[in-house]
Structure formats: C-alpha cells, structure tokens
Design a protein around this nucleic acid. Structure first.
Length: 382
DNA sequence: TCTGGGGTCCTAGGACCC
DNA sequence: TCTGGGGTCCTAGGACCC
C-alpha cells in the first residue's frame, strides 16, 4: 500500500518569529545567534543569507560578512509557543504528526483521504493555513516516504509547495548532489567525491557490493536505498527520549579543577531537574569535556540501579572526571553532563545510604527559588 | 574564521561467559 | 600449553541531524 507523507518546514523559523514580534525588522538581515566570542548562528533571515550568513557559522564570522546585521539571542520559549500553534493545525489532519524539531514535522496522510480529501488538497490547505493563521511562511513537500517528502519541501523553499509522485521520484532525485540525502554529511560526501560520485544519479550507478566495501554492510545498504528513493521509516508521533544532557561552552577556558568540578555539579542538577520533570530514572551518567584545542572526550558509567537523585548523579559526574587526562596547560572550553538508559519512574528503588527525601527537597527548593537557590556542597564557587 | 546545544545511531574493541 | 568461536555487555568515539 503506497504511502503519502507530508513534510512541513518553516522558513528561517527563529528569524521569522523575531520579525513577527518586531515588525520594524521585516526584510532586514536578522540573525538569531549565540553571543560572541563563541556563539554560532542558529538562523539567518533570507536577507542575511544574501551576505553569505548560514546557520552553524560562528557569530564572529557572520558579523564580518554582515556588519549591519541585526543580531538577536535566541528566545526558545517563544519559538516553542509558535511551534505549538503550528502543531495544533497539523494535528487536525491526522494524529500521525511527527515533530522533527521546533520548525519541522512529518505527517502520514495515507489514511486521511476519506476525511479530508486527496493529499494534494490537504497539502494545499496546510500550506495556505499556516501563513494565514501564524503570519509565518512555510514550505511543504509531499512524497511516497519521508526521504522524498523532505527533499521536496527543501526544493520548494522558500514558501513553496512541491508534490513528488512515485513515478517522478527517480528523476527528481537524480539531479541532486549526494549531500542532500538524509544521512550523507560532509565526511561521506567527501569520500564519495573521491570516488567520482557527486550526484544521486552517480550514486545509483555504483553496485551494492562496492558500496558495502566502501561503507560497511549497513552504510552501503543505506546509501543504495537512498539513491533509489527507498525509505520505509514510519512516521512516529511520540518517541521516548533515550538520553538527556546539558552542556556549556565557556566564553573563557576554565583552568581550575575546583571550578570544573563545581560546573559538573551544577550541570548535573540541571539534568536531574529535567529527569524529574519527565518522571524518569537514569541508569547511566556521562560527562563530556572539550579542551581548548577542540579535542573532546567523553566518559560514562553504569549505575547499579536507576536514579533521579541529584547527589548521586553529581557525585558520579565528578568521579568520571578523574578518568579524563587533562593535557598539561590546556584549558577546558566545554563541559557537559548527561544521563542515559532511562526508565519510567513508576518504581523508585530506595538508595541504601541516602535519604530519598533529600532529592525531593532539593528539587522543590530549586523550583521555588530558582536553580541558583541551592547547590550541592562545593558547587557554590563562581 | 575557529567552530552551540540538543539529540540519534553506528562501529569497534575489550571483558567475560559458555 | 595453546587453542576455537559466538554472544552479550560496556565503553569511547564519530558521523549526522536540526
């Protein structure tokens, strides 16, 4: 049974929301970016893109390319608010809405025909309603699977609507450079380029056996499928999160070990706050340390039992630090703390030597008085 | 020019067990 | 004393996505 998948992608979403809230900025080079010296661009308006500004680019570089640009810090709560409005519209057509990020979603329209008419009609209606009801522009793509739907919306940008029918898939894909394919990033694209493979058409000429020998059995198989526009991945409305983490890049490198430990404790508390808010327990704690030269190392450890106790997560995070070799003279530019192996907190095992109420009290105080109200011993140094 | 923060998935090696 | 192969679990790193 053929599927109809729709992909909605908001155009320059964060920048467009800022223009919506500050009408005087409309049409100007609006750049939503983390602060200098180490921030990067999250979204650039189309006016800013004319100057070569792209997302992921360091803010300092964006300022050089576009000195008169309007640089704004991201306001995720506001973007989330608008994202919810958009999701509400999408949910009217099918329960099968899979948000990819704040500004993107997949819909499986395969079963919606009886209620809402042919997929073309639904796509046109969504494409018209979102700008009308939110004052934000979007691009819509429709295809027989997620891969094609996403590439279709990309081709429709900005503000367009493109439907790729099954019989058009191959000719639509063939002209595209391989790096447009989902899962083909800079590294894979460079390796393919070395072999003389630039477009999806080129990729389709490479036999499966050869692709397997280049990229391993799984990687080769995946590329072979992508080149043919084959993609069976289902649209999944809600998925369980598999890990939670917080990380920070510091404006200045950290050298003092006590400061590093204090930061790990602070990040651990933030992670635990979210863990509890989502009513989950974690059985793995991980840390991430990035040095001034950008080398990065991660350490993780498995706990004897799942926990949401701040004391335990913080202690494990600090403990993991002893397994990291800090190169002499190198400062730390980023620290991260994460948890994984998450299970629902329906059953809460009691720690043997820690009062379980302590964790609850900690969270309550922090909720009432803010995350700075209470810190774990030794994490108060600024 | 100097590289964010939140994730997912895959690979590879070592330990351990049968 | 030296030698298997397979399976599972754990850990670290890397590619990739938005």
């Amino acid at each position: 049974m053929p599927r109809w998948i729709l992909h909605v992608d908001m155009d320059a979403f964060y920048a467009s929301v800022e223009e919506l809230d500050h009408p005087e900025l409309r049409g100007k080079p609006v750049i939503v970016a983390g602060p200098e010296p180490r921030g990067v661009v999250a979204t650039a308006s189309y006016a800013a893109r004319q100057f070569g500004v792209r997302s992921g680019m360091p803010t300092t570089q964006a300022k050089r390319l576009c000195p008169h640009g309007i640089f704004l810090p991201p306001r995720f709560d506001r973007y989330e608010e608008m994202a919810q409005k958009i999701r509400a519209i999408l949910s009217e057509y099918t329960p099968l809405v899979e948000p990819v990020s704040l500004d993107e979603a997949f819909l499986d329209l395969s079963g919606s025909e009886l209620l809402y008419g042919p997929p073309e009609r639904i796509a046109e209606e969504i494409h018209m309603r979102i700008p009308k009801e939110t004052n934000l522009s979007c691009s819509v793509g429709v295809g027989p699977n997620k891969l094609v739907a996403k590439l279709a919306s990309d081709a429709a940008k900005p503000g367009g609507l493109k439907i790729v029918y099954p019989e058009e898939v191959q000719s639509f894909l063939d002209q595209l450079p391989v790096e447009k394919l989902w899962g083909v990033g800079p590294k894979t694209a460079a390796r393919l380029e070395e072999k003389g493979v630039r477009t999806v058409y080129d990729l389709r000429q490479v036999p499966l056996g050869l692709l397997r020998s280049w990229f391993g059995p799984k990687g080769g198989e995946a590329l072979w499928q992508l080149a043919r526009g084959l993609d069976e991945t289902p649209v999944v409305p809600v998925r369980e999160s598999k890990s939670l983490s917080h990380e920070v890049t510091y404006a200045q490198d950290i050298f003092a070990k006590e400061k590093v430990e204090a930061e790990l404790r602070r990040l651990a508390l933030l992670v635990v706050d979210r863990l509890r808010a989502e009513r989950l327990l974690a059985q793995t704690v991980q840390i991430k340390v990035r040095f001034a030269d950008f080398t990065t190392c991660t350490r993780q450890t498995k706990l004897p039992e799942p926990t949401d106790q701040a004391m335990i997560v913080a202690a494990e995070a600090v403990g993991l630090l002893s397994r990291v070799q800090i190169p002499p003279g190198q400062g730390v530019r980023l620290l991260g703390v994460g948890v994984a192996d998450l299970v629902p907190a329906t059953f809460r095992p009691l720690p043997l030597f820690l009062d379980p109420k302590l964790g609850d009290v900690l969270c309550e105080v922090r909720q009432k008085f803010g995350t700075d109200a209470l810190r774990l011993g030794n994490s108060s140094s600024k």
